[in-house]
Design a protein around this nucleic acid. Structure first.
Lengths: 235, 235
DNA sequence: AGGAATTTGTGCGTATGTATC
DNA sequence: AGATACATACGCACAAATTCC
């Protein structure tokens, strides 16, 4: 922990906890030890542990109750995926880029076979970067019924842009599962995936859409209850 | 600030900052004073101010850069709306309920006229609650082309459920603007909107969808860069 | 019913690390 | 290289919610 390249402790802790929960080593609904006790066992300050726990809660894997305890929740890691989703959607902060490695038309894998009307799909493999820093490997399957042929050049820009303008689709919602220590066999050497401690894995099924804008809404809210809202929204 | 019902200081601070930014009293791109100086002026500890600033950043109205400063961003308050959106979508934590006040078919308001093919729309007014606590007033306009008639009973459950099963629509993405100190003229007395300090206002335009699932993706990511990702995703 | 014990939430202050200018 | 500014980490005291006796 002397090197400057080390991650912040609270991130290391939250990643560790997420792996423990996602891997099922902590039972659903079970309560963690008291924060002070846990912090002492881990050799960190309570505040540091609390920051880690808050992070895990945001990712939807923990339910924190004042006066009671911290409870494990076995739900998909919605928030961490949302961060990826936002990269292309909002383009806020940093420059998101993607290099398309390959586009192939193949028979669909098992989990995907039930979706869409065709037996084949387009498999797109991409490298995702932020400000030139490689952050993710991505494999996307698109139902062949959408298009006969897809070229790499057509995907040059944002996938979101491609969906919207070429296919008329808009990403509607995502459903994810999280796994642990799974490494793809096509990982390039440029992307140093650590097969041990810090490798995460997300599997996503998402719904798509075609309709034009057909809704308009207005919401007035009482900001004095905003804390309550966000607190419940996290749970 | 003596009463026990008062909100935490850091929430009060973040709400104050959000109002200042949303109302345009802080110019877009302008830099806030250094945190220590700001904390001293406001009479709070640096840690407390930092918690408030982090909250404002999550809501997308602030860009924080280590070693440089905190910069104002005039973008829609995406995250705060996302909290509302999640209420029906995830149903995590707390019991979200909605009371439909009225459903009327009327000529569409100006801002909505450009969307959809019809001149009329269904205006739905609802009360949103979490665990029995009234948290928001909502007015939704739905293009009349979707349905000739909409009854209150059909909306009894979740609006999301109604969209999905009755209209075949899935909410795809939202675009919001934030305003300040706007109070609807149909606010019931039960909902104590404070016209002064703490009233927020959100106006939303959202896209909807019909298509069935047609995409499947897998993403492998390097968790050692998760901090970088989430930091950029927020900005 | 009620009070004590337990547990998380809030807030403060400080020291040190790291990025930016 | 130095100054500035945000990020991390620690520890403590008290408040608030829950649980238990």
């Amino acid at each position: 922990m002397a090197k400057s390249s080390a991650l912040p402790k609270y991130i290391q802790l939250s990643e560790m906890l997420i792996r423990e929960i996602a891997a099922g080593r902590l039972a659903d609904g079970s309560r963690l030890p008291p924060e002070r006790e846990m912090a002492e066992d881990l050799g960190v300050a309570v505040g540091t542990l609390r920051k880690a726990l808050a992070d895990v809660e945001v990712k939807g894997l923990l339910h924190r109750v004042q006066g009671s305890g911290n409870y494990v929740q076995h739900r998909p890691a919605v928030e961490s995926v949302y961060a990826f989703f936002r990269l292309e959607l909002l383009k806020g902060g940093g420059l998101p880029t993607a290099d398309v490695l390959s586009v192939d038309r193949l028979a669909k894998p098992d989990g995907f076979a039930q979706l869409g009307g065709h037996k084949e799909g387009h498999r797109i493999r991409r490298l995702r970067s932020l400000d030139g820093v490689l952050i993710a490997l991505e494999e996307i399957w698109l139902d062949a019924g959408q298009r006969d042929q897809i070229s790499i050049s057509a995907l040059s820009e944002s996938l979101y842009h491609f969906y919207r303008h070429e296919l008329g689709l808009v990403i509607a919602s995502v459903e994810d599962r999280i796994g642990v220590d799974v490494v793809p066999d096509w990982s390039p050497t440029a992307f140093h995936l650590n097969a041990g401690e810090v490798t995460g894995y997300i599997e996503r099924v998402s719904w798509t859409a075609t309709k034009e804008p057909a809704e308009f809404s207005r919401t007035w809210y009482d900001a004095s209850r905003a804390n309550y809202i966000s607190r419940m929204g996290k749970g």
